[in-house]
Computed example of a mutant assay.
Amino acid sequence: MFDIGFSELVVIGVVALLVLGPERLPKVARTTGHLLGRLQRYVSDVKSDINREMQLDELKRLQEEARKSAMAFETTVRSELASVESGVNASVQSASSAVAELESSLKSPADPAPAGQDAAALLDRQLAEADAHAGPPPGFETAQVPSAPAAPEPQIGLDFGAQSAASRNPKS
């Protein structure tokens, strides 16, 4: 704080001893020490208050940045949600129009159904035609795997119906 060396303190002490005298010098020194202690505490309190205010300003700035980023994130999520919702609505509308078209084709078919054929048979025929048109793409070959005869699967890995090897080949 102040740049006072040891020799300057000795000079001040000698002058104080001459001016104040030996009876009052200890009392004045004690009072001066208390006042310097209070001054140091006051300075440290002011420093801590300034540091606290600086930290509070920093926290407010961080809070504002976090709020802005949260608002930007919310805006982005809302826009993405709106685009997904519009896509879903378009898909639902196209599906409902396809269902309406299918219902209209079932109510007034272009080719009359033979006698005794009901709507389920007509729908099965239309599904079979759709499956025939939706075959594999050209150049795509599927491997024909022969199906193995289905064997009954044992429960929990234990086969109580099969004989063990020891009971089939008794060697005793």
Results as ranks from 00 to 15, higher is better:
T76L: 10
P149S: 04
T31F: 07
G37Q: 05
R38F: 09
P154N: 01
A128Y: 00
P22L: 06
E85K: 02
S79F: 05
R30P: 06
A148M: 15
P137F: 05
R38W: 08
G33I: 07
I50D: 15
S167V: 13
A70G: 02
A166N: 10
P109S: 04
N51M: 13
V92G: 01
E23N: 15
P154I: 03
F6Y: 13
S108Q: 15
D159Y: 06
T75R: 10
Q63I: 09
E64Q: 15
A70L: 14
S7L: 13
L25G: 10
S147Y: 01
A115Q: 07
F2K: 08
L36G: 01
S172T: 07
P146I: 06
H34Q: 06
E65M: 06
F6E: 13
F73I: 14
P114K: 11
I4A: 13
K107A: 03
L17M: 10
Q126C: 06
A132L: 15
E103D: 13
T32M: 05
Q55T: 02
E101S: 11
R24Q: 04
A130W: 00
R41V: 08
V19N: 01
F2W: 14
Y42F: 08
S164W: 03
G13M: 04
R67G: 03
A95S: 02
A166I: 09
A121M: 14
E23G: 10
V15F: 09
F160H: 15
L56R: 14
L25V: 10
F6N: 08
A121F: 13
E103Q: 15
S167K: 11
A113P: 06
A95C: 05
K47R: 14
S96F: 04
Q144D: 12
S83Q: 11
R168Y: 03
L18I: 12
V145Q: 09
R30M: 11
E8P: 04
